[in-house]
Each structure stands twice: as structure tokens, then as C-alpha cells.
Design a protein around this nucleic acid. Structure first.
Lengths: 341, 341
DNA sequence: TTTTTAATCGAAAACGTTTTCGTAAAATCG
DNA sequence: CGATTTTACGAAAACGTTTTCGATTAAAAA
């Protein structure tokens, strides 16, 4: 009960393997009659081309690799969905690996993908990644690479991002516009570019509006699976340390929702006592009370665009063309809800 | 700058390809001296075995396929994480495809995976799937298949599940034990086995406790990405249609949280006026006010177990042993919080 | 010394496909 | 009708690995 091969078809029809192969690919130099015959016996024998052989011959597997820091995360799973949906349209399959925010693991996973000889790689960096040799190696190796969301500016490859600094600026500006005089920030981890940029946007908005930048108003959180709790803890801390804060720009929605929960519990009115703006527009943001004003971060679209760019580079690579890295910046928008005035 | 092959190593050392291959695999019939030599030149030439050739030769790709109804879903992404983590330990990679709850898509994705000749397949069924020919075909084809969570009882393959009926029974019993006299149920879609089982568990608990089963107390929802809203809508409907209901067992946490939100908004006290038990123990359940009593559904573990079982079958398959389908039932537990008395 | 055994190595086939190049027969043309 | 083109097909090499089965040599035993 072995799967049928070209040879099997050839033997039943008493023609050569070559002709069978050509017939199935509609080569013009095989007669319509035999083409039809071959196609028919192909279905009766339930022939499916042996992907392994095709891969070996064509040197491509129509498979790409995807490395993300964490799968169980609304934003990233949206990105994954975007990538898969687009990949499918172009006949590509996606192997997913996760780095668990670890640099070491990220290196290892990258190596796994290279060993598997995927046609291209999509990656969003781990928070712990500060050395980029493993990424530059890939580019030198010639495997197309596209980074998204958590990128490294120093690596010379295509990137799909949002303008975190600008978005954070807009978020902070909104707080100021709605009357906040003393705005705090719950920032993300120190390394990843996007949490740095969001912090910088926050800071710039303050200064541009003639407000003082006070480092003690910046609280750092890991933004991992304890995000919700970090929001509660930081909210409590803030309440104890700075009675005068009337607005917070928070790195992610989940932390923001944790903070709102804590404020609700303590009788601190949002937005009357403290206004809050989150980041990412997680679907729970519209569910919580008060609903959360936030920056919409288009995960699904980011995934789609990342694959689209990779696809271009896959084709360029195949035709031995040089790849010109491209930075694709996606639009974000401020979604005004009830956690700001 | 082509990647190095066995031939390259052989030529630099002036030995045969055969010996190189054997040396790298530590065959005893190649001297320690040459083994060392080969290994050394392998690293200097940066040799990596060509996966395509290995696949063709060994007829396996160390890759499995995974089909799930929806990636952007906390439970499923937990399962994915469990699968990937376990697969990695055994040197397997995972290709992920999603069916979007569509039977047609599910068939298509299955076909894609077969064409890719993955070593095995893990699947959780789409809600729309009621015909199982495509699944039985795979089993006949000889590709190991393991189903999890949303399974088809009629397909003769291994399954990893929870006892939905029992869990629902326990949830409903808890409502009754805490004083509820008239218990409603927000159920899931009509087709999938687990939403049927949860409904049956609910019904049985009622009858076992001498309570009347009233079909008009059962509300159906799609449990898709509008779950939260469905919870709100059904809660409002219930309030209008049945003033006397004092407890609800709800198919999923997200719907339950929507319901709680609606009740909070309307001044209906949970649990004083209405008690609620959810299902899945989504992390937001402990965040919402009041926190949600729910059934803990071990997604990560389910993923791990599903892969472990598949792995056994992959090995059995390789050794031409017969596969004995196994049903693995994972424990669930009732997590008591503040939405019940 | 001859025979046996162990230690090393290699030739070659196989996995199933794709593609180049060549050839024979049939069709077209002058 | 001969020359040329077109049509239809196939032989064979190549992709890079794994593995079987001999072959060769050196060491050990007789």
C-alpha cells in the first residue's frame, strides 16, 4: 500500500517517467491525449507528488519559519493568524516556534529552522535579545528574513512595525488634552525597542507640552503572563507614592486593565480621579468598566504585511535578485473610550 | 557560496562520501581518527545535513501538522504552546493550520498536510464538521492522527479530552449546592461534542437533584469572537424572559464574563441575585469583579498529552506496529471564586 | 609461513522528482 | 518528392543522503 509514484503511472501506461512528469505539469511537448490519460491514471492511483523529492530537486520547501516570543498572547496570536492566512494564499506553510522571551532559545530555534531549510523566516525578537549576530548570520546565509513588531534597528533586513514613539506621543497628548497635569507611565521591559520607543514618545509629549518629566513617575513592568497583576501592583504603588498623578499612559492593555481593576477596588474613579490610556486595543478593553481608551495596534494586518514582504523576498531570492530591505510602517489609531475624559 | 555537502567534506579529506556519512553518525566501522577529522572539517565547512535529502531517504520529515479551529483563542493557544513545547523536546517541528470552524477548510488543510507528508497530525475539529470521511481516510492512509478537545467519537483514533459531561455536572451541582433553585444554561453550538456533553451534564445534574429541566432556560451561542457580546445579549434576554432564574452554568468563560458585565451594569447582584459558573478558567476570570467560579480546563497539558500520544504512534508506525487508539481523559477541577455563594 | 579475524573503507543503488538534451516520426513547405 | 520544421516522447543526470554489501589491509592466531 505504498503511495503511488510517477513510475507507477508510467508503468501502467507504458510510457516514460519523464512524459508523466511533464504531462502533470502541462508541458506543451506532450500531446493532449497522453496528458489526459496521465491525469486520469493519476487520480485512479491516488497519486500525490512526493514532497520530499520535490523539495530536494527544487531546493525549496514552500515552508517558512516563524519565531515569536510567546504564543499565548492576544496580539501575537493575531499576528500568527495574519501570517498563516496570507501564507496559505501563496501556498506556503508555517512552522511556528517560540522563544519564551529568551535569547538563548531564540538562537536555538533559529538554528532549527535553518537546519530544516525553510525558505524564509519571520521573527519577532525576545525581550532578552541584545546581540544580533545570529540574525546577521541568517542574512549572510541568504535566507530571507523579515522582522516584525519587536525588531532590531541594527539588523539590515525588512521590518514591519508601527511607530511606537508616535503612538505613545498621541496617547500621552490625549491625556494632556483632556486635562491631565501630571502623567505617569507604566513602561515595558528595558531592552525591546518598542517599549523604549513608547517611553520616549511619552517623555517627548510631556516636554512638548511644558510638563516636567519626572523619572519617579515611570514604573517598569515585565509585561509577561503576570501583566494583569503587575497592573494592580503598580497602581497600588503609584497611589502610595504619588497622590497627585491624574493620568497614566500604560504600555499594554492588560497591565492597564489590571490597574483599572485596582483603582475600581480602591474607589479611585477612572477617569475622574485618574485617566488611563492603554496600548494594543485588546478586545477586553471595550469590555471592562470603564472601557479603556487605547492605541489600536493592528496585529492581524502586521502578520499579513510581514508575510507579503517575505514573499517578495522569497521570489527575489529565487531569481537571484538582490533584496532591498524595506521598512513598512503600519498606521495606529487612538481609540477613545471611557477611561479618559 | 552553496551550503557544504558530504561530498565537499569527502573531497577535502580525500575519502569517500560513505565514510563521511558514517563518521558523522558515529558508525563503529570508521576509525576514531577519521571520525574526528570528519567532524572537524564538518564544522570548518559549516556543514548542515540537507534536510530535503534526509527526508527523501528516510521517508520522514520530523514534522507534524496541527489543525485548530481558531488560533486567536486563549484555550487553543495554550494547547498550541503545550504541543510545540513537547514536540521540540522530541525534535519535531509543528506546522499550524486553522480551519476557521469550517468543515470545507478543515478538509482542505488536511489535504495540504498530507501532501506535505507530515509524519503525523493533531486536530481539533471545526464546529461545522459532522462528516468524518476525511478523517477516516487519513487513518487508512496510515498517517498517525490524534484528536483533542473537539473530537468525533465515531473516528477510530486516539483522543485527548476532558470529561465535559462530568465537569458540567459538577459545575451545575455546585450551583445547586449553593442554593440555586432555577438554573439556566448558556450552551455552545449544536454540533461539537463538547458543547453537547456540557449540556447533558447540566441536564443530568438538574434531574438528579429533582429539579425540572426547562428547555426555555437553555440559550445557545456561537462562542466565536463575539462571545463576550453574546454573554451580554443572552444575559439581557434571560432577565427579560425569566425573572426567577438564580443561577447559570455558562459554556465558556468569555460568555460568562460578558454576562457578568451585563448584570453588573443592570444592577443585578452576582452572586446574590444570580450565581454564575463558567468553563475553561481563562485568566481574566480571576480578574473580573466578581471573580468567576469556573471549571479549569488544562489547555497546556492537553497539548502536551496530545503530542505525547502522537509521538508514541509515530514510533509504532515507523516500526510497522499496529496502533491501538487510546482515549486519554484529563482531570478538570472546579475553581470556586466569587460569582457563586 | 599460512590462515583467520578484525578493522577500515568505498562502490553503488536507492529515495522520487525535474529538466536538459537528443531523437524519431509526422506534418509542412517549396 | 526532398528538405525542413513541428510534434511527441524518452534517456539520463542531478539533487544529497543512507545503507548494504564487498573489498582491502593489517593484526592475530595457527
Amino acid at each position: 500500500m505504498k503511495p503511488a509514484t510517477l513510475k507507477d503511472i508510467a508503468e501502467t501506461l507504458n510510457i516514460s517517467i519523464t512524459t508523466v512528469s511533464k504531462a502533470l505539469k502541462d508541458y506543451p511537448d506532450v500531446s493532449k491525449k497522453t496528458r489526459k490519460l496521465v491525469r486520469e491514471t493519476a487520480v485512479t492511483l491516488n497519486y500525490k507528488p512526493n514532497a520530499f523529492a520535490v523539495n530536494l530537486r527544487t531546493k525549496e520547501s514552500k515552508t517558512i519559519g516563524l519565531i515569536i516570543p510567546e504564543i499565548v498572547h492576544h496580539f501575537f496570536s493575531s499576528v500568527i493568524k495574519g501570517i498563516i492566512s496570507q501564507a496559505e494564499k501563496k501556498g506556503y506553510l508555517v512552522i511556528i516556534l517560540q522563544s519564551n522571551e529568551s535569547y538563548e532559545l531564540e538562537k536555538k530555534q533559529l538554528d532549527l529552522l535553518l537546519n530544516k531549510r525553510v525558505d524564509g523566516i519571520l521573527i519577532s525578537l525576545a525581550n532578552g535579545t541584545s546581540d544580533f549576530k545570529h540574525l546577521n548570520d541568517i542574512i549572510e546565509n541568504g535566507t530571507p528574513l523579515v522582522m516584525f513588531d519587536k525588531i532590531a534597528k541594527l539588523v539590515n533586513c525588512s521590518k514591519v512595525v508601527i511607530d511606537d514613539r508616535k503612538a505613545a506621543y498621541i496617547a500621552t497628548q490625549h491625556l494632556i488634552d483632556t486635562g491631565c497635569k501630571r502623567v505617569a507611565h507604566f513602561r515595558g521591559p528595558l531592552l525591546p525597542q518598542n517599549s523604549i520607543d513608547r517611553f520616549l514618545g511619552y517623555k517627548k509629549a510631556l516636554l512638548d507640552n511644558g510638563l516636567e518629566y519626572d523619572p519617579s513617575l515611570v514604573y517598569t513592568c515585565a509585561c509577561d503572563d503576570m501583566s494583569f497583576n503587575e497592573g494592580k501592583v503598580n497602581a497600588a504603588k503609584l497611589l502610595a507614592e504619588h497622590k497627585d498623578v491624574d493620568g497614566i499612559f500604560i504600555n499594554t492593555d492588560m497591565v492597564a486593565i489590571g490597574a483599572i481593576t485596582e483603582f475600581n477596588k480602591r474607589g479611585v474613579k477612572v477617569p475622574d480621579d485618574i485617566s488611563i490610556v492603554g496600548f494594543s486595543n485588546w478586545f477586553m478593553s471595550s469590555a471592562i468598566t470603564p472601557s479603556l481608551t487605547t492605541i489600536d495596534q493592528p496585529g492581524f494586518k502586521m502578520g499579513k504585511m510581514a508575510f507579503k514582504q517575505l514573499y517578495k523576498e522569497l521570489k527575489a531570492n529565487k531569481n537571484n535578485k538582490v533584496i532591498h530591505p524595506k521598512i513598512i510602517e503600519l498606521e495606529t489609531s487612538l481609540v477613545k473610550r471611557n477611561s479618559t475624559k
